[in-house]
Design a protein around this nucleic acid. Structure first.
Length: 845
RNA sequence: GCCGGCGUGGUGAAAUUGGGAAACACGCAUGGUUUAGGACCAUGUGCCGAAAGGCUUAGAGGUUCAAGUCCUCUCGCCGGCACCA
């Protein structure tokens, strides 16, 4: 009844350019699966719905939109099995999701609903891709990628977890393939730095920062030689073919470098083939290493294997020492330069390798501190290297800030100082330079599937790669009969001859369309922009509307998207900002995260485990309001928590009590109840504050405390009851609306809002959700008496009710005159009395 | 291995700056109501003890008049990253 009333009156539609301040509340739009809505979704949606409803009551013009992130594999797999077109499946699933979401009374603005699979939507996803392409940030590259054997598609690095496919948990392997890439690494520094500007949960920032993985160090060139003669670095100008470059964050340890290690994929091996004396052995090792998957490399590789490149050596530029070179798969080709300088004395991995291959270990840094186990190297030996008077100074140094020895002119510098000085030395002598390195890799953007946005590129035999003209967008997905991905790694679209064969936009000669599609993360990387102007046909959204609504004020979603969707969409937004499409560099002002709801067995909900809770059943059996309340009351919002089917009985009972009070108690204007009034104001404050901090569980508990008190009363003052209904309404909007409207119908209450623009067939009364959020009276919150706690030696022995703000003298007198206290103090000497105003008095005897 | 978080009744949990540990709810027990069951209502419910009182926030120690909260160490759990040089 009330859902219909809200919808008909369009209470929750956002207004572009209202005079009210704007507030943009965002939840992660769901992927409409065949299974239907999940309680994992609804926990987050209920929380943001409460916030959106409160903001409206606080006078904001709220945008709280919803849509569908509908491209993806499950729909495609269903299509493969049944032959039903993904479009039809998507329609059916979104209809079901829409019905379910509406049944929970969420205050979404349904007029702005979007769907990523709608050509009118993905036209703009493709348009953004072309902008990336124009700026050289979308490029094609042949490279080893992660290939999921069961999904039969390439995956981004972010989508591979423990060597397994993030989606299906199937095996992945490395395959050499031409792939579209997005140059997210070009934004690595800004994606990291700008985290300072946004209000994200700390753990989200930390996770993103770790993923971006910035480290500061230096690139150092080691000259290759196969003779034993020494070379003066200053007399020889380095030439790139004669050098191996390494990246290190610890230049300060370089005097302890006893060998170099290159990754099996390193080009130096091919380049110097003729000089390697044990080439057969080396090639055999490389072949074996390449056979290992990433999973094997990490799981099985407890032992560090490797082979020396005999016949060639390199020279350490700092001390002209010759050191051997090894190839070993503990060095990754994809990070840094694919080569490292090994300092076994000051690096655990190098130490392991050195021990196994009997390589020399040379300590060059003395680490101070008092814990002998944390001192690297031989302390006595190290101390001998220092002048005696510096011993005191050494002890002052923090454990991690060591001091160099046996390091030529850099000896006796601290590690940090040495890093600076040695980097300067490298730059001056052209043996290297300062370098900031990131772990983040470019985003593999190609997928070999049907149900995704076609990449708007045409391959012409004459002109090469040509982008589809913007006026020809969208490149629509063709209808096909078979959706199966292929083992060859070709997209199923490759077989659609009519679609693939096109004329080249440049030379009009025959050409072929790109048949790879975009990953499912594409459409969600910018969807929050489209909500501001979902029907726009001329641009992804009107400029003025973007300026009005963006950034998103509060975005709640799952932790699992921290290094995927959240990072990707920040990247897209920054790019769109740079080309003047969006008004702010950061898309989301504030980001919070909800904990997962687990099955009753404490396991993650899944169909196969049979522990899935279906929101439909809960709504039928307990009602939407009880469901909403329970999800908020279940536990701390950020924490994962198992579902408890008995717990929801409690919130249903609570709603039952509210109903009973409204139907059986005398609710009237004539009644006065000071105690209840005080409690109301406390409750208003607590509920309001808790919502802001996402302390929903304690907010619900304070509503319960208030109701328990009302339940004890015979009569309830009407104005108090009304205010309670208002603060209840974000949590349980249906019952709050019903009781609110009943009060107006059943009494001679004269309507104050006759000028309300909202007319309805159901009711002529204004919705409770349009009432202003009540203000609490801070004077009423303060009690005029309090329970003074009396402690003896810090233990509570008695409490007495006393006037607020009594003096220490009065409190002492009262406390010492209590019978219980007298017994405790009798025969003892009072040494000290501590008095905490309006709290306690502690008598030390 | 590194980074982050956490550890409180039978259960989910609560506890502004260090100031009454266990709010609120579930469950359980007893009683009422009911033909019966469910629902509902009332009372009780950290542990030991007849009581007075004592003990209790993973464990050990420390600071303090006072510690769940601060400090040190140990143990355990969860999440993230992971041969990132």
């Amino acid at each position: 009844k009330w859902q219909k009333y809200w919808e008909e009156n369009k209470f929750y539609q956002a207004e572009d350019f209202s005079k009210k301040p704007k507030y943009y509340c965002l939840i992660e739009f769901p992927y409409p699966s065949a299974e239907g809505l999940h309680v994992g979704h609804t926990r987050s949606y209920t929380a943001m719905d409460i916030i959106a409803r409160k903001r409206r009551m606080q006078g904001y013009n709220v945008l709280h939109p919803i849509g569908w992130d509908a491209f993806g594999l499950p729909t495609e797999n269903f299509a493969i099995k049944t032959g039903i077109h993904p479009k039809i499946v998507t329609k059916k699933n979104t209809d079901n999701y829409r019905r379910q979401l509406k049944s929970l009374g969420f205050s979404f603005d349904w007029s702005r609903e979007i769907n990523t699979t709608d050509p009118e939507y993905y036209k703009w996803t493709q348009w953004i891709f072309l902008q990336f392409y124009k700026k050289g940030l979308a490029y094609k590259k042949k490279m080893p990628i992660n290939w999921c054997l069961s999904c039969k598609t390439g995956l981004a690095n972010e989508e591979v977890v423990d060597g397994k496919c993030e989606r299906c948990e199937g095996k992945t392997e490395k395959r050499e393939k031409e792939q579209w890439m997005l140059a997210i690494t070009k934004y690595a520094d800004r994606l990291l730095k700008d985290l300072d500007e946004v209000d994200y949960l700390e753990k989200i920032k930390v996770q993103q920062a770790n993923w971006i993985g910035q480290s500061e160090g230096a690139i150092i060139k080691f000259q290759i030689t196969n003779s034993k003669s020494q070379i003066n670095p200053k007399s020889q100008i380095p030439n790139s073919k004669q050098f191996i470059e390494v990246f290190t964050t610890r230049v300060d340890t370089i005097f302890g470098c006893t060998y170099l290690v290159v990754a099996p994929e390193h080009t130096i091996i091919k380049n110097l083939e003729s000089k390697i004396k044990n080439l057969g052995e080396v090639e055999k090792y490389i072949k074996q290493a390449k056979k290992k998957s990433d999973l094997q490399r990490t799981e099985l590789e407890k032992e560090k294997t490797g082979v020396e490149l005999k016949g060639i050596k390199v020279i350490n530029p700092f001390n002209n020492e010759e050191v051997p070179i090894f190839v070993a798969d503990y060095v990754l080709a994809s990070y840094g330069t694919g080569a490292v300088m090994a300092v076994p004395a000051h690096d655990g991995r190098d130490m392991e390798f050195a021990n196994k291959h009997n390589l020399p270990i040379k300590y060059v840094i003395f680490v101070g501190g008092t814990d002998p186990e944390k001192i690297y190297g031989n302390i006595n030996e190290a101390l001998e290297k220092f002048p005696k008077d510096s011993e005191k100074a050494i002890n002052k140094f923090h454990e991690e800030d060591g001091i160099l020895y046996d390091s030529g002119q850099f000896s006796q510098l601290t590690s940090e100082k040495a890093r600076q000085e040695m980097t300067k030395w490298l730059e001056k002598n052209k043996f290297g330079k300062k370098k900031i390195q990131y772990k983040l890799r470019d985003w593999i953007f190609s997928r070999q599937h049907y149900w995704g946005e076609p990449i708007p590129i045409i391959h012409c035999s004459k002109c090469g790669e040509v982008s589809v003209s913007e006026k020809d967008l969208p490149v629509e997905l063709p209808d096909v009969k078979k959706y199966e991905p292929t083992d060859t790694g070709e997209s199923p679209l490759a077989n659609v001859k009519d679609w693939v064969n096109v004329k080249c936009p440049k030379c009009k000669g025959s050409a072929k369309r790109e048949t790879d599609t975009m990953p499912n993360w594409a459409g969600s990387s910018w969807y929050f922009l489209r909500y501001t102007d979902s029907e726009n046909k001329k641009s992804l959204a009107d400029n003025k509307k973007l300026k009005y609504w963006i950034p998103v004020d509060w975005y709640n979603g799952g932790m699992e998207h921290t290094t995927l969707h959240l990072l990707y969409s920040r990247f897209w937004n920054k790019f769109l900002f740079d080309i003047n499409v969006v008004p702010t560099s950061e898309p989301y002002k504030k980001r919070t995260s909800h904990g997962m709801i687990l099955g009753e067995d404490g396991e993650k909900m899944s169909k196969s485990k049979g522990n899935v809770v279906n929101p439909d059943d809960v709504v039928v059996n307990f009602g939407a309001d009880a469901f909403r309340l329970y999800q908020m009351f279940i536990g701390p919002f950020e924490q994962a928590i198992p579902w408890d089917s008995r717990g929801i009985e409690g919130t249903k009972r609570f709603l039952g009590k509210i109903w009973d009070i409204s139907q059986t108690k005398n609710i009237s204007e004539k009644i006065n109840n000071k105690d209840l009034e005080k409690l109301l104001h406390k409750t208003i404050k607590k509920v309001g504050d808790d919502i802001e901090e996402m302390g929903f569980n304690t907010a619900v508990s304070s509503l319960m405390i208030f109701i328990n008190k009302c339940y004890e009363c015979d009569d309830v003052p009407k104005n108090i009851w009304e205010k309670f209904l208002i603060i209840l309404s974000p949590f349980a909007p249906h019952i709050a609306e019903e009781l609110w409207q009943q009060m107006r119908t059943n009494t001679d209450y004269t309507q104050t809002n006759t000028d309300s623009p909202y007319k309805s067939a159901l009711s002529q009364y204004r919705s409770v959700s349009l009432e202003p959020w009540p203000k609490y009276n801070s004077k009423l919150i303060i009690e005029d008496t309090f329970e003074l706690v009396i402690q003896i030696n810090g233990k509570v022995r008695d409490t007495i009710s006393v006037k607020k703000d009594i003096s220490q003298k009065e409190a002492e007198k009262l406390a010492l005159s209590q019978e219980k206290i007298k017994n405790w103090v009798k025969g003892k000497k009072v040494k000290k009395i501590i008095f905490v105003p309006n709290r306690l008095i502690n008598i030390v005897i």
